[in-house]
Every structure is written in C-alpha cells, then in structure tokens.
Design a protein around this nucleic acid. Sequence first.
DNA 1: GCAAAAGTGTTTGGCATACACCCATGA
DNA 2: TCATGGGTGTATGCCAAACACTTTTGC
Lengths: 229, 229
Amino acid sequence: MSAKSSPKNLRFAVLAADITLFTLHDGCLLVRVVRVDRSPHFVNYEALPGGLLRPSETAEQAVSRLLGDKAGIAKGKVYVEQLYTFSRLDRDPRGRVVAVAYLALVPYEELSEGERKDNLDVRWSPVGRVRKLAYDHNEMLTVALARLRSRITYTTLLQKLMPKEFTLTELENAYESVLGKSIDKRNFRKKILATGVLEELSKIRAGMNYRPARLYRFKLKKVKEVVVL
Amino acid sequence: MSAKSSPKNLRFAVLAADITLFTLHDGCLLVRVVRVDRSPHFVNYEALPGGLLRPSETAEQAVSRLLGDKAGIAKGKVYVEQLYTFSRLDRDPRGRVVAVAYLALVPYEELSEGERKDNLDVRWSPVGRVRKLAYDHNEMLTVALARLRSRITYTTLLQKLMPKEFTLTELENAYESVLGKSIDKRNFRKKILATGVLEELSKIRAGMNYRPARLYRFKLKKVKEVVVL
DNA sequence: GCAAAAGTGTTTGGCATACACCCATGA
DNA sequence: TCATGGGTGTATGCCAAACACTTTTGC
C-alpha cells in the first residue's frame, strides 16, 4: 500500500480525471465536449474533457486545472462532485488508464462570451444529440445524466445550473429541461415554496410586454437534501 | 491520456482498493477489520481490508481477490458496489496512494465457521464500537454506512445482508439494526408486501415454543429500486 | 394455561394530483 | 383592447402513521 516501498512494477497505473460538464441554455441541457484526434484509434472523435493527474495533485485539483486547460472554462464558478471510477482494462486502447469521472455543473449566465461560443477544439453539445465519443465516455455521460436527474429530485442541486436570481417559471423550465418532462405549474410552486429553500426578492423581471415576474434566489449556496418534486 | 505516450514521471499512481464489508448478526451490524502494524505510522492499528491493484486487474477484480486474501472471506457470496475514490495526497503517510473504496455485503448465514470467527489478523467489529482506523478508513466507513442506510430505504439492497429465506420479523429486525431505529410492525408488513418484491413460501420456521412464522424470500436476486420504507 | 412471538384492520390527517381562470404589463 | 405569460385555490383520493388484540405453538 505504499508508493515508496512498492517495487517499480507496481507503480503502474495512469490516473485520469474526466469531466461531464453540463450547462442549461434555452431549455436545452448542454454538455461540454472536446475534439480528440489520436491515430490510430480515435480519428476525428469527440470526448469529455479530461486528462492525467499530476503526481502531486488530488483528483479534485486535477479537475480544477482541466476545466481551464481542456474545457476552456474558468474554474471557480463550476460545481463539481465525484461520479464514479472507471477501471476497465481496455477502456483506453493505448494503455491502462483508470479514470475518476466527475459531474460538473455551471450556470450559462456565468459563462463569458468566449466560454459560450463553440470553436474547433471544444463546444457545447445538446445531450440528446451527442454521438459516439472516444473511450468509455458515452457510458460516463449516461451515468452522469442519470445522477443529475436523480439528484435534482431530492436535493437542491439544480441551483448549480441556475443564475443567482430567477423567476419560478424559469426554475420550473430548468427542471423540465433536465428531466425531460413537464410539470404542473401550480403544484410546482406550492411544493418548491413549501420546502423553504427559496428566498423571495423584492425585485421583478420587467421589460417584457407581459406581466413582470417576481425574482427568487436560493437561500443557501450549499446543496441541501430536500424533497423537491 | 495514454500510458504508452506519457512520460515516465507521469506513470506514478499507486492504486488501491479498500473494502467496507458488512454483515448482520444477532441484531448487530458488523464490519470486517484487519490488523495492521506498520512502523512508524500505524503500530497496532486496525484498518479496512484492502490492497494494491495489480497491473492487469480492474478495481472490481482486485476486490474479489482481496476479499479472500485480506478479509478472509470466500468470494462469490459477497455483494460489491463501488463507493467513492479517495485521492487526498496525505491519506497514506508512506506515499501517494489513491484508493477506490467499495461497499460490500455478505449474509452472516453464508459464512463458514472460520469466516465467522475472529482471529489475530482479522475480525468482525460492531460498527458502533470501531475505534481509530489507519489511513482515512474511518471516513470510508462513515461514507459506507451512510450509503448503506440510504440505499436500503429506496432499493432492495438489504437482501444482500439477509439469508435466502427469512421471516418478516427477521427482515424487519434487519432494517431496524441497520437504520438504528424501530419500525411499526403492521405498517412494515403492509408496505413490504405491497411492493411485491417478496415471495411467500409454503414453509414455516418451526421448533420454537411459540407460534411458527411463515418464511419469505426475495423474488429477484438483483437489487431493485423500490420505495421500501 | 402460560409464555412468547406471529399475525391482522381501522381511523386519521396530510400530501400529491388534477384542473381553469383572472391579473399585470407593453404595444 | 389585445396578446402574453404571471400568478392563484380547491376538491379528491391515496398513503403514511398511529394504535391493540387474537392466534398458534411448546412446555
């Protein structure tokens, strides 16, 4: 169990961190994908952003770094939680790589111009239209999406995809976009307000040619376990 | 992301698998602990069973092997699911070791004489009476116990701690032992039978000097998501 | 007939669901 | 005044929770 006392041939594993980074825009759940082009196995593929751990960083620190270097998103505004560790021997055809996968969430409103735009290296893909990814990244995406959907129904995790202030309709639409089903407006409002996780602001969202909506925010930044739906 | 293309100094990681193995006996939740005695850091400590991954095995395969070699429990009868990956730099004072932790469950009834008995190297400890463990294993145990308690309330995971056939009272006691709280007998029976996960057997548990109880078993071996409590 | 655990039903309150209309604003 | 989404209340049925007595067996 010790690095120092192990024979060299036991220092074998390459550890990677891979990130399933979601955001929500225009009623569409988006996932960050990067272009990979590594002959002979993956020519013109896409993959989830990820990379190797450095010797002196934790997996979480690697995720912070890779968010910037690979995903092109300034860290700090991104929520991250560990998802699952994938250790199949052939998951990377070029050698043994064990990957610790992370679920990451960022509000679209906190992204800069540049972070929102797609380019040749990296882009936002609607989750429904993701094609074949390199490595076992389709499996990772499936696990991440299942986890996200499950967690937003019994925690306040969705706040990590929302702007600081929002209307109840916007919050309801966010639930509907992630879960892929519609929700009764009146019951949703009763229930979410009854949980007490929201704080009513005195502000309203004005400027549209219909009745302005009241703004709310989450009382706590911390994700809390409450039955939301 | 490739083992072959990485510089040597990136091929650094020592990967371990650690196992939180629970069983249930006499209304007491037990966890398997092994003795460790590695100067200078851990003299006369206990720890969860675990060990390094070999270059050509997955974490799951390592768990199978370590269950026999370290925990002293024949594999095959043990249910295993991945828990969390711990990558803190100082979690092992002797060097960098990333540990994939597993939650494992075994019915006490399927253990052999030898596997039930404690010895100098390895024993069953009541979870409430576990003292300071080596590494970050107390944290692992906490995470494992929380996961176990949470999962038995919305899945049939508890079947992995039960014998093949059991009475409803025995099943209720198992829930109570793991959750650490008592449950109303009549409501429990109504609810667990309504889920339809149990199969009523024609057999009866006789031989006691009170009314014999009907035996049940789980219809499916697979853990199923149903609201149990 | 006694001790010990098995087995069984009803009442109550709260909560999820289903559902339709008026309100406030800008153009 | 019209178009647009914002905002609200009630009735119904189901399910969770609380609660106590009769049954069956071995001794």
